[in-house]
Design a protein around this nucleic acid. Structure first.
Lengths: 188, 188
DNA sequence: GTTCTTTCTTGATTTCGATCAAGTGCTGTT
DNA sequence: AACAGCACTTGATCGAAATCAAGAAAGAAC
């Protein structure tokens, strides 16, 4: 099992050596090519994925065929649609990798099995709930500057991982505006 | 137990007569005066509340002391902070009633007890996940007109239950703009 | 009832980000 | 090296919603 996941779990909770052994047998490592889809629209989210390497985005296509990006992810993030996972109903959005990526897949059945064997795995629920990386610019009515600041503070790695037009789309601003924001920030 | 809750549960899942009996013993009925706080900031959300009568709002105060309304609720809605409830960490926002209200309180201990007695109560998890009434204007960059349309379609009752300045705040638009939107819609 | 307060409406003005447009620079391909 | 294609920058213009301002309407208090 990758050190990355071990560190992540140790940081978020308490797991024994035996827990890691149990977990290891359930993980499936997948290598995905740029653009491959992890969870398609209308599909039920029945696994969670730990992003070891690469990048992923979560998006949907609205009525006017715009791709609306609702989350960006980098190494160490969990990929799943909470709502679909919990309700067993079709996902309203797509999760796909943006670059060639490596992920661990952990199915819902595996999770149930693990919990049956060790109570430690109850902690997974909390991790998932916490780790919606997703910054809520959305609740507020933030200005482009505030949104960018937020990203710099909360998820600076994303700024390195994605081109600006993707960042701009995620922030719901135009690439031109993002360019001007960055220009302003660089002069501070 | 109020018919309202029975109907709600029957509509969302399958419960036996006995389930209802079990549930009834765990419910605590509370009468709240206008403005009373159900879940305060920094408090852990350790109960869920079914709003029988009245109205409630969920909000937080940002750095510049504006009250940011993130959800509005009417009779038949569940009140809770999912994230705080799941992670057992302090809530980032407040839930309070807007008018004199009646609610059923169901504690997390009660829920665990109920699930131990009847598997039916697993369904509660799904209900809660589904019933974030919360419309996501936030993911999109909707215009005032689109936001209002959304509300009319998805949660028309809110328009009757709250004054326009509250609605406007929820939609992140000014009361002036809301007034103009309504004027436009009335002429269609 | 009358007054006081708050909500809502309507109009005029301003402002910020989108759009339109052109140019620069980088990367990969042949 | 030359070119094509794409990402990013920079400037000019436009437009929609915020802000500013005043008045009308609806409630609450007396």
């Amino acid at each position: 099992m990758e050190k990355q996941l071990i560190d992540h779990l140790n940081q978020k909770g308490r797991y024994s050596q035996n827990d890691f052994k149990l977990l290891e047998t359930e993980l499936k490592k997948l290598s995905l090519k740029k653009g491959e889809i992890i969870l398609d629209e209308k599909e039920v989210c029945s696994s969670i994925y730990f992003l070891i390497q690469g990048t992923a985005l979560q998006l949907y296509t609205d009525d006017t065929h715009n791709e609306m990006i609702i989350d960006l992810n980098g190494p160490g993030d969990w990929l799943l649609n909470h709502k679909s996972f919990a309700t067993r109903k079709p996902s309203e959005y797509i999760i796909k990798v943006f670059n060639d990526s490596e992920v661990y897949e952990l199915s819902i059945e595996s999770i149930h099995g693990l919990i049956a064997k060790s109570q430690s795995f109850f902690q997974l629920g909390k991790i998932l709930e916490e780790s919606t990386g997703r910054v809520e610019f959305f609740d507020h009515n933030y200005t482009p500057d505030q949104k960018y600041q937020f990203l710099m503070e909360k998820r600076p790695n994303l700024l390195q991982l994605f081109p600006q037009k993707i960042i701009a789309s995620y922030l719901k601003i135009t690439p031109e505006t993002l360019s001007r924001v960055r220009n302003r920030f660089s002069k501070r």
